[in-house]
Design a protein around this nucleic acid. Structure first.
Lengths: 226, 226
DNA sequence: TTGCTTTATCGACGAATTGTTGATTACACT
DNA sequence: AGTGTAATCAACAATTCGTCGATAAAGCAA
């Protein structure tokens, strides 16, 4: 059984346990404990990096017993992954749905600005998990997540331009843009956020839409599909 | 002292040790040992993933004593990193310098085709290290490495179009393209290489040059810098 | 071939971390 | 107030880690 499957199974177990006692409310003890663990992890991540942390460190900082940790999470990777899901969920709530009025990208999409603001707000966290001693599982998860933004946006362009004949499938394009966004975010973080979220979203949008040549002030060469 | 600095210091030590005895040749025992360790690591990576591997596993597979490992590498991360440097070096040797005849990108640069071929050839390796249980330090290193390809290429466009007025600095663009390339490579690997290296290089080039809109058959909206 | 240098081996060490156990205490909800 | 769940505590065996000193083996040069 793969790690991913194990984790999702574990989540299911917890969910059913919670709903067994009370279908709506969560035991405040559990909430307190998990919050303490998440907080401790975040603090420690910023102090010594992720892989220097042991489960002992986390529970010690959270002032919980080590056995309690294993009551909630498989290991520290699991803790981080489940924590980041919560962070992402907050982002989704903040960013909201795609604004259908702006499909043609007359201006940078508000969602993208929110993403950059979100990253800026949690910069210490993202700097670590996306960095040299970061967490691959997190990056992969984030990649998937960003694709849920880029993919429907690219797909929706077809409804706006029904006559357009794409010469490249959407998957290719959305993975391209996703990778580019991740790259830009990492660069932004590693250079101590040299520009505002608005600037980043704006330039990123134009660069994606119009290509590198136009951003260099050059008319792109003619594009003859072979 | 950072991990990166420690590693580079270690490399220096080893280099000076080697050059102390014989400035050219390397002791065949060292070469044999390191090759065995690299081979064992690669085999194990494909079997059980990187983080499930212990130093014991590696030395056991390589049929060396565990203490011998620490004579050459700090830990398994160090081993992988130094191994991948060798892989990159081979790529550089294969790809060669930027072809000055093709600066304007009338066709996809030969270097890029070589990169995709190289990845395809070592697909098992890259699938693991770029994947969910991969190695962040490796990805960061690869990011730097890819930038050494993209950055000078973008910079060289200025010599070709001296009158062009860039509306976005080169760093932004090269990091964007680097991220996009990594994203596309990961997508390519995770989908079992659905296209040829030539196809990938071709589409990636056009996408970078002309932007996403043109690849969807849409004329990009006018670009008024505010 | 002989002798010097470097590398690899072996066994062992304490230290740290891991995942799990059973018994007990504290807490929350009805 | 009582029932059940969660958290605590101490302790367990098992792994792994990094390092040590002493010994054996291999390479190289005279």
């Amino acid at each position: 059984m793969s790690y991913k499957q194990q984790v999702s199974n574990m989540s299911k177990e917890k969910a059913s346990q919670a709903s067994m006692t009370n279908s709506r409310k969560i035991d405040p003890r559990i909430e307190r404990t998990q919050e303490a663990l998440r907080g401790a992890l975040m603090a420690l991540i910023e102090e010594k990096g992720f892989d220097a942390i042991s489960v002992q460190d986390v529970t010690e900082r959270a002032r919980l017993n080590r056995a309690t940790f294993y009551l909630h999470y498989r290991d520290k990777q699991d803790l981080l992954l489940r924590t980041s899901e919560a962070v992402f969920d907050r982002l989704v709530a903040e960013a909201g749905p795609i604004d259908r009025d702006n499909l043609a990208l007359q201006k940078p999409p508000q969602q993208l600005v929110m993403v950059f603001r979100h990253v800026a707000e949690h910069r210490d966290f993202y700097r670590v998990v996306l960095g040299r001693s970061g967490v691959p599982a997190f990056v992969a998860r984030m990649r998937e997540y960003v694709t849920t933004f880029t993919q429907p946006r690219i797909a929706s362009l077809h409804t706006l331009y029904p006559t357009a004949v794409p010469i490249l499938d959407e998957m290719f394009i959305s993975e391209y843009v996703t990778g580019a966004l991740l790259g830009i975010i990492i660069w932004w973080l590693e250079n101590d956020l040299p520009h505002s979220p608005e600037y980043m979203a704006d330039r990123f949008t134009w660069l994606s839409v119009a290509g590198t040549y136009r951003m260099l002030g050059i008319e792109p060469p003619s594009l003859d599909a072979e």
